[in-house]
Simulated scan of single mutants.
Amino acid sequence: MRSAAAALTSLMALAATSLVAGPAVAKTSSASCALPRTGAHHSLGLDTWNSAYPRPTGVLDAVMVFLSFPDASPQYAPSELAADHFPTTGDFFKRASYGQFSLRTEPQRTWVRMPKPSTAYGVSRDWEPDKRNTYLRDALAAADPTVDFSRYDVVYLVADPEAPGVDSDATKVVNLDRPLRADDSRIRRVVTVFERHPPDRNVLAHETGHVFDLPDLYHRPTDGKGDWDTHVGDWDVMGSQFGMAPDLFGWHKWKLGWLPGRAVRCITRPELITLEPIAAPAPGGSLGTRLAVVRTGPDTALAIEARGAVGNDRTLCTEGVLLYRVRADTVSGGGPIEVVDTHPNSEACWDRSVYPELADAPLGVGETFTVPGERTRVEVADRSESGAWTVKITTG
């Protein structure tokens, strides 16, 4: 590691030379580092879109159905529970997509009575498939007389949070191999919401991400003990709904179609680039470079992006240039993305972070880091008044 002063001096000299002489090489097409989609569940390959999932561009319509049970009387109105999640979830996606996607949600105004007590459905995080399917069939059948499911792209089934059989740890997206039918529509996935009132922060943004084919980025301990946040810490809502910097990774935004190819730079030789913070808005739809990618194998890549205290990331702990590994052949929950800790001997924001060891993972101005096991070096030269970062990336 060079001293901060030496790194800054040398890199600023290089920046000045580049500004005068222009780039040494032409920009590489983003297609060259777009990993192929594999058979892994929620694969992060993005050369093609999985048509089994709705793509979050333009406007998608969602419905919230509120389910009560014979063994409990709801203590809250549906409008109160709807306000737990919207408009905040819609606002999250509006900011994350740079205004390119709107999740238009219609909450139903009355409770729909389920035919069985809440305790009959065995609701739990690891839900028994037969009981889960019974719950879904009963819910859709009960709601069908008053809800036209053919009008909606996303379905949220919200259970009475005070019912005795409701387990708040069971909120999740249910992906169905055999779709259910309602109103001549094939329903392949449903978000089952069992949150307490008030709910976990950003929980519906996380679950809705699965509706759009995004994977879980947390690490689930096999023995039920240990830390869930070792893969990405605070840095993406698909890792933790409680994260301080929950905006979606640039890789996710690229996959979803929110980052166009011109905003992605594939690095194949030494380059000096300017990275705008991934969570910063795009006035007038103008996006500069937001993501740099180094291809490291047939199904792997190193991604580099800037994170600043703006937009969905406004409560982050440490600003800087974040590095993370992407694996297109790794299943959801298996570590398809892992943040590289450029400060492995320190931590930050222990009182707020979900995983303090990664809270200070980004590189700051004047810092240099060589990725372990690879020949990629990242040097941060400068940060402009507007918040953009000047970065030199050297590949082996």
Rank of each mutant, 00 (worst) to 15 (best):
L316Y: 08
P107A: 04
R37S: 05
A5Y: 09
V191S: 05
H210V: 06
T394S: 15
R125P: 00
G99E: 09
A328T: 03
R327I: 00
T171I: 06
V365M: 06
S73T: 15
G396D: 13
D169H: 13
P260N: 10
Y324P: 05
H219P: 01
T268Q: 15
T192D: 02
T17K: 11
M12N: 15
A26N: 07
S386R: 15
V326G: 11
S79Q: 15
R262F: 10
L358K: 13
R196V: 07
I304K: 03
W235V: 01
E379W: 00
V25H: 15
A4S: 14
P54Q: 07
V20S: 13
T146N: 08
G250I: 12
A62F: 04
I187V: 06
W49D: 09
I278A: 11
F69E: 02
A282R: 02
A21I: 00
P270G: 10
E271M: 12
R95D: 09
Y121F: 04
Q241H: 14
E367A: 07
L60V: 05
T28D: 08
G122M: 05
D360P: 03
D160G: 10
D236H: 13
G333P: 06
A26T: 04
G366F: 03
G311N: 13
L363N: 06
P362I: 04
H210G: 04
L180Q: 06
P145W: 14
V378R: 03
T289Q: 12
L204E: 15
A6M: 13
A159K: 07
G122N: 06
H210L: 02
R186V: 01
H41Y: 12
K225L: 12
S185E: 06
D126Y: 10
F101R: 11
I273L: 15
L272S: 06
T222C: 03
P179K: 08
E106S: 13
S3V: 04
D360E: 10
P78C: 01
V371G: 04
P54A: 09
G297Y: 09
R55L: 11
T208C: 05
V166M: 12
D126H: 10
H41P: 07
D382G: 12
A40C: 03
T28E: 14
P115A: 05
L214H: 03
T171W: 09
E80L: 12
G39L: 07
F92I: 09
I187Y: 04
P281C: 08
F86A: 07
A7C: 08
G335D: 10
V25C: 11
F101G: 12
L157P: 02
C317P: 05
G165W: 08
T222I: 13
